[in-house]
Design a protein around this nucleic acid. Structure first.
Length: 448
RNA sequence: GCGAGUGUAGCUCAGUUGGUUAGAGCGCCAGUUUGUGGUACUGGAUGCCGUCAGUUCGAAUCUGAUCACUCGCCCCA
């Protein structure tokens, strides 16, 4: 603080972790990557910067306010605010060279210029998967995406002891058809959808009054309330409860709504065969007013409701319409890596993952031991993939040990005058404190 | 875009109605231990009290402005 003139504090909403924290985060990232690969997704990379016209092709009013946008020369450019829109451009551009259905994952940073809050950043990692195809894409790919995300989240929550999680699933066609049938559209539909989306976060009383205010029609209000009781019933599927059949007589006339129910039925049935408890139908999931056209879902950690949805996504049919004449449809979802794990890591709540900076640390005592240390390090590299490093510091041995302790090394390989004279090393297990002096080759066998 | 709060040591914070030399814990450095860390004990260093102005004999403390950060709201493709 004294004489420095420039504030070194990281920008609000941006994240920097300490080395041990970063190791944990990177391990989490690679667990996600491994899981995505295992499910048959392959990665691509796209630029952080896109032309603004690409990003805003599909966007509505409020979107632009959240985007980092700037000009360079005559170019109007923006930082990507998600990975899906750039992916849509990528697919359109490389359409001829891709094989469909194309399953892609992308784990990368995105940028949103909104005010930072707890767990909400301006630069953060998203871990996306998407499947795209031309013209038709089986609803079973919705299942593929959701179950892949579920498996991935399961391995993360298990490893990090985060407790159970639930995925809530809906289908936008149900509401779209519903409002279509009632001739409700535009601003009013948006306003009603907005309050439906908030249903889980507000009290039933507030929901009821807000809904009434926006609907301005007791009959429609009643139908909406009743629609929430729609659920998956084993051996029956999804159906309107019998007592509401009269109210919903008109449903037979709306193809979109029926299709939505049918799709939801297939999706939830398949998922429940994987886990009965994890997946539930919840029509209050609508995912804003974005590009989704069918299946939509959100994920909640039971022990961390304050995180909100930690993974979400859905089916989209028209995302590429602005970039190509081909009819490309897709389904995807993402895990909010930063949102979940940065607060947990910063608070030291992740215990299942090693934060060791180096696996094996070689401690030569004095410059006379450096060449042997260098030799031993190279020998270690030949027999193991564990990381190994030499500390070349001409300091008291106690200091070297403190360093070894601070970086959390698993083994300390001690090389002093005695070891050099006898062509041995002293191998110390830093966890147990056990130490033995033995020939280099014997030490290598233990390390391996 | 709107609202509230907080800026004091590397970190987390305390600091009385304005009154000498600015406090704690953790961390850091040194020692107890010249080839052994984590635990313990002993000692030590560290501050333009966010910045600028004002009130006052006197400001970390009161006032104003400004900057930064934090937490909410809106929004969240």
């Amino acid at each position: 603080m004294s004489k420095k003139e420039i504030n070194t504090k990281v920008l609000s909403g941006f994240i920097e972790l300490l080395p041990k924290q970063q190791i944990i985060f990177d391990n989490i990232k690679s667990i996600v990557e491994t899981s995505y690969k295992k499910a048959g997704y392959v990665t691509i990379d796209t630029p952080v910067i896109e032309k603004s016209e690409v990003l805003f092709a599909k966007a509505g009013g409020d979107t632009e306010k959240q985007v980092y946008r700037f000009t360079k020369g005559d170019n109007d450019l923006s930082l990507r605010f998600d990975l899906t829109v750039p992916f849509a451009r990528y697919v359109s551009e490389h359409y001829a060279d891709l094989v469909f259905p194309f399953k892609r994952y992308h784990i990368a940073k995105v940028y949103r210029g909104e005010r930072a809050q707890k767990g909400r950043y301006r630069e953060f990692y998203q871990a996306d998967i998407d499947v795209v195809a031309e013209n038709e894409l089986s609803v079973m790919y919705d299942v593929d995406v959701i179950s892949t995300l579920a498996k991935t989240i399961e391995s993360l929550t298990t490893l990090c002891s985060l407790g159970d999680f639930k995925m809530k699933i809906s289908n936008r066609k149900i509401w779209d058809g519903f409002f279509e049938q009632l001739n409700i559209s535009g601003e009013q539909k948006a306003s009603i959808m907005n309050i439906i989306d908030k249903k889980a976060k507000i009290t039933p009383e507030v929901f009821a009054s807000s809904l009434a205010e926006r609907v301005q029609n007791p009959q429609v209000e009643k139908l909406i309330t009743e629609l929430f009781e729609l659920d998956f019933i084993p051996n029956v599927g999804i159906s309107i409860p019998e007592k509401y059949h009269a109210d919903f007589a008109f449903i037979k006339d709306n193809e979109k709504m029926r299709q939505g129910i049918r799709e939801l039925e297939i999706v939830i049935k398949s998922l429940k065969s994987v886990s009965e408890e994890r997946f539930t139908v919840d029509l209050s999931i609508v995912r804003g007013l974005d590009y989704y056209t069918g299946t939509v879902f959100e994920t909640f950690l039971e022990n961390y409701p304050e995180f909100g949805s930690v993974s979400s996504g859905g089916r989209y049919e028209h995302l590429c319409d602005n970039y190509t004449d081909k009819k490309i449809c897709g389904v995807g979802g993402s895990i909010g890596l930063s949102r979940i794990f940065v607060p947990l890591i910063e608070d030291g709540k992740i215990s299942g993952i090693s934060d060791s900076l180096v696996d094996i640390l070689i401690l030569p005592q004095g410059e006379n031991c450096y060449s042997m240390a260098f030799y031993v390090k190279n020998e270690i590299s030949k027999v193991t993939n564990l990381s190994a490093s030499v500390i070349y510091e001409n300091k008291k041995f106690k200091k070297l040990m403190e360093y070894a302790n601070k970086v959390g090394t698993k083994y300390a390989v001690i090389i002093g005058e005695d070891e050099v004279a006898n062509n041995t090393v002293s191998l110390k297990n830093m966890q147990t404190g056990d130490q033995q002096t033995l020939p280099i080759n014997d030490a290598l066998k233990i390390i391996k």
